[in-house]
Computed example of a mutant assay.
Amino acid sequence: MSEDLSYFKLKETINNPLRIFFLCGSHFNTGDQDRTDKRIVLKEYIESLNPNYKCLILEENFLFRRDTRKLNYNDINMRSLKIIELLTSLMSDKVIIFHECISTAAEIGLFSSDKIISDKMVILAPDIYSAEEDVISGFINLSYNNRVLPDYNLEIIRYYPGTYSYEISDNSNKRHTYFANNVLGENLKSKLSSTLEVNHSCIKIEKQNKYNTFNNDISKYSVSKEELNVTLTIEHLVAMLISLFTIEELKRKLREPINNVEDRIKIKKNVLFKAISTLKVTFRKFIERTISSNNQTLRYNKINISVACANITFSQAVSYFIYVMYGINLIDINYSNKKLVITNQLDQISAEYTDLIVSPVDGGIAEVLKIE
Rank of each mutant, 00 (worst) to 15 (best):
Y152A: 02
N153L: 04
E155S: 05
I157V: 12
I157G: 02
R158M: 04
Y159T: 02
Y160R: 07
Y160S: 00
P161T: 01
G162P: 14
G162C: 05
T163V: 13
T163Q: 08
T163S: 14
T163W: 13
Y164C: 11
Y164D: 08
S165W: 13
S165Q: 15
Y166A: 00
Y166Q: 09
Y166S: 08
E167L: 06
E167D: 10
I168Y: 15
S169Q: 11
S169T: 12
D170K: 15
N171M: 09
S172R: 12
N173P: 10
K174R: 12
K174T: 11
R175V: 09
R175E: 08
R175M: 09
R175C: 06
H176I: 00
T177W: 09
Y178C: 06
Y178D: 10
F179E: 03
F179G: 01
A180I: 09
N181H: 06
N182D: 06
V183A: 03
V183Q: 14
L184A: 04
G185V: 00
N187V: 05
N187P: 02
N187K: 13
K189F: 06
K189C: 08
K189I: 01
K189T: 03
S190L: 15
S190D: 10
L192T: 01
L192Y: 10
S193M: 07
S193R: 14
S193V: 02
S194H: 10
S194N: 14
S194Q: 13
T195L: 08
L196F: 03
L196H: 03
L196P: 08
L196W: 08
L196A: 01
E197F: 14
N199C: 02
H200G: 03
C202K: 11
I203P: 15
E206Y: 13
K207L: 05
K207C: 03
K207Q: 09
Y211R: 02
F214Q: 12
N215W: 03
N215T: 00
N216E: 14
N216G: 03
N216K: 11
N216R: 13
D217P: 12
I218Y: 06
I218P: 13
S219A: 08
S219L: 12
Y221T: 01
Y221G: 02
S222W: 08
S222L: 09
V223N: 09
S224D: 11
S224I: 05
K225T: 01
E226R: 11
L228V: 08
L228M: 11
